[in-house]
Design a protein around this nucleic acid. Structure first.
Lengths: 225, 225
DNA sequence: TCATGCATCAAACGTATGTTTTAAACAGAT
DNA sequence: ATCTGTTTAAAACATACGTTTGATGCATGA
């Protein structure tokens, strides 16, 4: 077969291993042996390990980027000039993520974990790549958030967005483990969609919390010595 | 000198480099050259790289664990039988962290980042070590959270605690980078204490959000095709 | 004083990594 | 049938890693 599925098999294996173990902790030999392809195939098709990492992200992020733009279009159209609410904006993002056609049911969880790792691990090349390739939908999301929370100062909004990002990336990235723990403790089954349903109200409430206090309520009562 | 400062120099260098680059991405040679000690000193004094990682955490976490227990004692004492509120519980934790005696002004930031990495990076040995050594204050914090949110179902509380953890770990794990970005954009300086001041109200509001909706408000209106 | 024990040092060990090279086989298009 | 791009195979490359070794220095206590 001239056009085989070697590239996809490499991407599948890399995606899963990166999500499980991180980038530095995953060797090309692990990837190629899981994908059942030759070691040299990675450098042949992608050029380098870093380029493979980029390709893993691009395979998901490029179609997602399109879906998201479309969802934002519909959202703004429906609001007819008025800025969309925070809830609607968050739901537009969530819906786009959840509705993305997945290779398997763990697709979103795997990718959320990868996004978290991209932020967390100090992979300079990755951050640069993501900023260059996907700045447009990201900026648009930021603009919508800004319109939806005019009561916040720029600094407050900045940090609260980071808190939202953190809660989302962290939870989704360990959603498998968290689901298992919950099921062992209470027998309750949870889908990624249900996690999102619980997450959005949490985020919206946090985002719209009362203005940040500049001192803790009982500051000074905790003296240690 | 029979009692040299080699051990502390290694711990200082390791702490800083781990926080900057992560564990796998930091080699013993980087650490020993930054600490200006011989390469073999790490294995001589600590036994292995993993044991060094544990020592870095223990140096901060052991005194912090004591401080935290004390803060919880005072908190419960002051409440005289009544369960402490969510706000007070979160502040007790935050205050204990912020008030820890630091080796330098970046001490908390560095250590928060390390805690974030401990969650994020898949260092099995680290997680095991932390669970074994510091399960007591962790369990106590969980119990306080449960008492402070009796209106939540166990499942809702479980997920919202994960959201809080995520927002905290993620933000702290990239706090240096986030601070730099904000400073470049707006010229605003931010201390770890200020981040905590902004984080706690966000968490408290999210934790106490209206009961989770079981369907998004406009579910079904986002059809893509 | 001198032997003991800890600390430090340069050097090497074995292993694993990303990458490259060579060769050979294979499929489809011209 | 020949050419082109794809894939496999095996091996080697240079480099970096964590760890170990054996010699050396050096303070302290007998």
């Amino acid at each position: 077969m001239a056009q085989s599925d070697t590239v996809d098999r490499i991407l599948d294996a890399a995606e899963e291993l990166f999500a499980e173990r991180g980038f530095s902790e995953t060797s090309l030999r692990m990837i190629t042996s899981k994908a059942k392809v030759n070691l040299a195939a990675v450098n042949y098709h992608f050029g380098s390990k870093n380029a493979l990492i980029h390709a893993v992200f691009a395979r998901f992020l490029t179609p997602f980027s399109g879906t998201l733009e479309q969802a934002f279009d519909e959202l703004e159209e429906r609001c007819e000039g008025q800025p969309p609410t925070l809830n609607d904006t968050l739901w537009a993002l969530t819906e786009s993520a959840v509705r993305m056609p997945q290779r398997n049911e763990r697709g979103i969880a795997i990718f959320m974990r990868l996004l978290g790792l991209a932020y967390t691990q100090s992979q300079g090349h990755l951050r640069k790549f993501l900023e260059q390739e996907y700045s447009q939908p990201f900026s648009r999301f930021m603009r919508l958030l800004k319109q939806a929370t005019p009561q916040l100062s720029a600094v407050d909004r900045y940090w609260r967005i980071q808190f939202m990002l953190g809660a989302t990336a962290f939870t989704m990235s360990s959603s498998d483990a968290l689901r298992d723990i919950l099921q062992n403790k209470t027998g309750v089954e949870t889908s990624v969609q249900e996690i999102a349903l619980r997450l959005v109200p949490f985020l919206a409430a946090g985002m719209q919390a009362e203005k940040t206090m500049l001192t803790p309520p009982i500051y000074g009562n905790f003296s240690v010595a």
